[in-house]
Nucleic acid binder design. Structure first.
Length: 432
RNA sequence: UCCGCGGUAGCUCAAUGGCAGAGCAUGCGGCUGUUAACCGCAGGGUUGUAGGUUCGAGCCCUACCCGCGGAGCCA
């Protein structure tokens, strides 16, 4: 098979005659010259077709091309200052592969609902390309980070017999003769089993929440990466999260600058994401809120507006640790110094993007954990295997979960997480 | 579930209670360097639904439907 040519590789083919295959992004024409913008997924290249060069027939052929028609364009590659990508093609021939019907997404503005209904087509636009590439870079960086530190990927099941945390509303389904099954809301408990087996593991997969949340930060189906490490305490956990976030952001800056430019992201704000990140206790967070005139009572969980106020005090992500144990999950270990607080930690992204990481040191004592299950009215049978992890060689261990879509949204500087995943699932949207 | 905002041409939007419009898209014509190209012409409407007030309703009133994003909950 003959080698293919792609737009992101044109620099190596200046002066050569090549053929590009793709779709018509836009067409501008005068009486004797046409500018054909071809996109091939790697970029957009402008082809210049001159009537006196290609002849009457070929020149007229280009008139059949509607927006998003598929075609092949052959010509000589030339460096061109005026072209956005730096290169142009002097077209000698085009082959029409398929003529597109009237394309609904025009180069002008559209509303989000209109675009969401056509998400399968919306993905062709340059802004969505940029977001998908940044998402790809983030996920690639995550795998690279853990692989480089000796972690093993541990895939957790999607079908689970009961709630992991006992708080969220879960999607329910029938599971043959075994009764109800639920779509996972977290792979963490399985990650803990993995950490006891392999030391350092990470779970990476989709998670599901049936809560009727209608905000720019919520999806019903989203991706989460959850490292879990044996013998790590809360401070080790924060060290890991700090290294992790810095690694991700620096990789995006290093490898996806053109995409960030397309998204008009403020680069300085991302460049500020360097270790060390500030670490404040919940108590200190409450002080910040009270200083800013919020009537906040100790013991409540931080709300979305509270998180925004706190994150605005810093130029980089901030750790908030040692929350009141009442508002946190059953498996989080209480602070031996102060049993009223849990060894929990959240990371609030800068610029008001909210909670991107939630984690904790886990309760490793069998009797305490059993009591916590009872306190939360959780079915003990379903957690019997989890209690085994405390029966057989229990050790201190910690982990956290990072929401991929919120991270993409923050790094790209987006208004809404719906653009961060190819096909978002929200309470009132399951298509396309 | 609660609070707020919205629904007018294919799309984005305008229209003191007084002839329903513009830009883009589409079609036709023009233009040899365009960058969301430009210029000219044309087609395109049950103003979310059902009632009500009024000489007259896109606009005011009532109910309903749909959507949006915020709260709660969370990543």
């Amino acid at each position: 098979m003959a080698s293919k040519f792609y737009i992101d590789n044109l620099a190596k083919h200046v002066g050569q005659t090549v053929t590009l295959q793709g779709w018509l992004y836009n067409l501008r024409s005068s009486g004797k010259i046409k500018f054909l913008l071809l996109r091939d997924g790697t970029g957009v290249c402008q082809g210049v077709m001159v009537k006196s060069v290609v002849g009457e027939e070929m020149f007229a052929k280009a008139d059949q091309l509607t927006q998003e028609s598929a075609f092949a364009m052959t010509g000589t590659v030339r460096a061109e200052q005026r072209a956005p990508g730096g290169f142009e093609m002097d077209v000698t021939n085009i082959e029409i592969i398929s003529v597109a019907k009237e394309y609904p997404i025009t180069p002008k503005e559209h509303g989000v609902e209109f675009l969401a209904d056509r998400r399968h087509l919306w993905l062709r636009s340059s802004r969505q390309h940029a977001i998908m590439r940044v998402r790809h870079e983030i996920i690639r960086s995550i795998r690279e980070f853990f692989a480089g530190r000796g972690f093993t990927l541990l895939d957790a099941p999607i079908f689970t017999p009961a709630a992991c945390e006992g708080t969220s509303t879960l999607f329910e389904t029938d599971y043959f003769d075994l009764g109800k099954a639920y779509l996972t809301q977290s792979g963490q408990l399985y990650g803990e089993a993995g950490a006891m087996a392999l030391g350092k593991v990470y779970v990476f997969g989709p998670t599901f929440r049936a809560e009727k949340s209608k905000t720019r930060r919520h999806l019903t189906e989203f991706w989460m990466v959850e490292p879990e490490v044996a013998f790590n305490d809360l401070n080790d956990n924060m060290d890991l999260a700090e290294d992790f976030l810095e690694h991700i952001v620096s990789n995006v800056l290093k490898n996806r600058m053109p995409e960030l430019k397309t998204l008009e992201r403020n680069i300085q704000k991302l460049e500020a994401v360097k270790r060390p990140f500030p670490r404040i206790t919940y108590d200190q967070a409450v002080e910040i809120l009270q200083k800013n005139g919020v009537a906040f009572e100790w013991g409540n969980d931080l709300g979305a507006t509270d998180e925004t106020i706190i994150s605005e005090q810093f130029d980089r992500p901030v750790f908030v640790h040692r929350y009141p144990s009442e508002v946190k999950a059953f498996y989080m270990k209480r602070d031996p110094q102060n049993p009223k607080v849990a060894l929990a930690v959240d990371v609030l992204a800068s610029e008001g993007y909210g909670e991107i990481i939630g984690g904790s040191q886990r309760e490793d004592d069998y009797d305490v954990l059993l009591q916590r299950l009872k306190d939360h009215d959780l079915p003990q049978e379903a957690f019997d295997w989890y209690l085994d992890l405390r029966r057989f060689g229990s050790v201190p261990h910690s982990g956290f979960g990072l929401g991929i879509e919120r991270t993409v949204s923050w790094i790209c500087g987006l208004e809404h997480v719906r653009e961060t995943i190819p096909f978002p699932r929200m309470i009132y949207r399951i298509t396309p």
